[in-house]
């Protein structure tokens, strides 16, 4: 069982992440109605929201320090927030502002915060190799930093997944691979494109532990991730963790989700992990007032980040030429 302060942190961080996405939703559709045009409005481009997947992020990142590396996916906000990425700079980046993490060069799928060793990328399974490299750097320097690569269940069918797991195991580096199984690669269901029922079983092919975590449960993720991360820090090598989670929104905003069976979204929302976790914490003796305070505080920092991002200036267009080379 997670300790009391970590559980409170996980709850507050899930609320923070969900509120971040909640503020994106209306902002994203500004300028995109009545006719949807992805290029319009203050948040142009694709937008992949993480509603529902928060337990994966908080259960793992509760064990991480700033010196540990995380690589995340095209759906990165919950993981970035849980890893401690600068929230103001992250919001500003998504709005394409000069005060953003990269000054507007990367946007929502390309968030980097070197202060906490966080990066994400827009290509499926792309972060796995870099996580192996970061883990190798830690090992070569005799440090106990670990590297965690988050990926979707669709990425487990990429060659990069198999190459990276094999390499991590051969080199016995402190890497943890975390599959957020939200059951869909855009529209294609996992059962229609994946030969194994459990991706965790694939760990056996690379001689590393494979853990399957059902139930989208922050405490269960916390327990398993804690074990895998401690093992990596001890120099005992990589692990694979598969978390059964859910995507409460479309693949991207504007997704009509016609591929979903009738009633699926309603069923998933009824099992929303955040109110469920609040109920469990209350049942475990947490004070409602403490949870309320955690919620209020979480929402306040997100509100402030969005207000600052909206008010911030855009970069000068000519700054597009900066940072191509170091």
């Amino acid at each position: 069982m997670s300790n009391r302060s970590d559980r409170l942190w996980m709850y507050g961080t899930m609320v923070k992440s969900r509120h971040f996405e909640a503020l994106i939703k209306p902002a994203y559709f500004e300028g995109k109605t009545p006719v949807f045009n992805m290029a319009k409005g203050p948040l142009p481009g694709e937008m992949h929201l993480s509603d529902g997947q928060e337990p994966c992020a908080v259960g793992v990142c509760a064990h991480l320090r700033p010196g540990d590396t995380v690589t995340a996916t095209h759906r990165p906000h919950h993981v970035a927030i849980a890893k401690g990425v600068n929230l103001d700079a992250m919001a500003a980046e998504i709005f394409g502002k000069a005060t953003g993490l990269s000054g507007g060069r990367g946007g929502h799928m390309h968030l980097f915060d070197a202060r906490v060793n966080f990066a994400c990328s827009g290509i499926i399974a792309q972060g796995l190799g870099p996580a192996v490299g970061a883990a190798l750097a830690s090992k070569l320097r005799g440090e106990d930093h670990v590297a965690v690569a988050f990926l979707g269940e669709g990425a487990a069918n990429q060659g990069a997944f198999h190459e990276a797991l094999n390499l991590a195991s051969v080199w016995k580096v402190p890497a943890i691979f975390v599959i957020e199984d939200n059951a869909y690669g855009i529209s294609v269901a996992k059962r229609d494109c994946t030969a194994v029922a459990r991706n965790a079983d694939r760990a056996a092919a690379y001689a590393m532990p494979g853990h399957f975590i059902p139930g989208n449960d922050p405490d269960a993720v916390y327990a398993v991730a804690g074990e895998a991360i401690a093992r990596a820090r001890r120099g005992e090598g990589p692990s694979l963790i598969e978390i059964e989670t859910c995507r409460l929104e479309g693949h991207f905003m504007g997704d009509a989700e016609a591929y979903r069976p009738a009633g699926e979204v309603e069923r998933l929302k009824a099992a929303d992990p955040i109110p469920a976790y609040r109920d469990r914490l209350l049942a475990d003796g947490f004070d409602a007032a403490d949870l309320d305070t955690a919620e209020t505080d979480a929402r306040a920092v997100v509100d402030a980040a969005f207000a600052a991002a909206r008010a911030a200036a855009y970069p000068q267009p000519e700054e597009a030429f900066d940072h191509v080379f170091a």
Partner: peptide, 23 residues
């Protein structure tokens, strides 16, 4: 001086992660 598996995506990706980590 590390011989790698024939896994170019992994070891070139790993080089990017090494470089990002100061190697």
């Amino acid at each position: 001086v590390r011989d790698t598996p024939i896994s170019e995506t992994a070891f070139i990706g790993a080089a990017v992660g090494l470089a990002a980590s100061g190697m």
